[in-house]
Design a protein around this nucleic acid. Structure first.
Length: 220
DNA sequence: ACCACGATGAACT
DNA sequence: GTTCATCGTGGTC
């Protein structure tokens, strides 16, 4: 697991790789499963002339629905916090958790229906020095193998709430790594389905999905 | 006004 | 494997 890809510089143009809105405007479990293997990209401003890009391959994710999902923030309707889960598919939902951590989701389903895929872990690809700096850890595996860890490594905070993941001008987006031929063995990945982590209600449903035998999956 | 409970991580043993 | 700091959110009284 010695991956370091340097194509994601400030010169990289995601135009032809970015996922479009119709990708997200579907059933949340399907969106979550298909986000496995895709690449989360965040631009951090380095100085006035260039950005530093943090990139990571999504390896662990959970699906949250709306009114009929008791574990979901949207289970009680469009409250101030959860309102964004009912809005445009393909935007981000970032919330503050346990008084310490930010968690990032991709909003799914059609406008007016709540749904979001929560990114639990990524495999770091680019911007590793910046991630090490932010995370203050010595091991690559500890950089992004948890939902709160990856947001810290990528510099994601509440200012990222509601940003359009389908817009190349956003500072956060999701692209299709398969189109870049970065992972020739991608079609062989095996997806494991498990109950979601850290919830009581709705724990019977298998709405967590992760890539089998990936070192960066959290809470195995 | 009050309270229970986390879509967690870190630091332990 | 274990414990626990920490605080926003939403439900209930």
């Amino acid at each position: 697991m010695d991956i370091k890809i340097n194509i994601f510089t400030d010169k990289f143009n995601p135009e032809s790789y970015i996922l479009n809105r119709s990708f997200y405007e579907r059933d949340t479990s399907l969106v979550a499963k298909e986000l496995l293997g895709k690449i989360l990209l965040v631009k951090s401003q380095k100085n006035n002339f260039s950005d530093e890009i943090c990139a990571g391959r999504i390896v662990d994710i959970e699906a949250y629905y709306g009114l009929n999902d008791p574990a979901s923030h949207a289970s009680h309707g469009a409250t101030p916090r959860a309102r964004i889960m009912f809005e445009t598919p393909g935007i981000s939902y970032v919330y503050f958790c346990y008084g310490n951590h930010y968690i990032i989701n991709a909003v799914s389903e059609k406008y007016g229906t709540a749904g979001a895929a929560m990114i639990r872990a990524v495999e770091p690809l680019s911007g590793l020095s910046l991630m090490f700096e932010r995370r203050k850890t010595g091991t690559i595996r500890n950089l992004t193998n948890g939902p709160g860890k990856l947001t810290k490594a990528f510099g994601i905070n509440k200012d990222f709430n509601g940003l359009d993941l389908t817009d190349v001008k956003s500072k956060v987006m999701i692209i299709d790594g398969g189109k870049l031929n970065l992972f020739p063995t991608m079609e062989k990945i095996e997806i494991i389905s498990k109950p979601r982590i850290g919830i009581r209600n709705g724990a019977d449903k298998l709405l967590r999905f992760y890539i089998k035998e990936n070192d960066f999956v959290s809470h195995k």
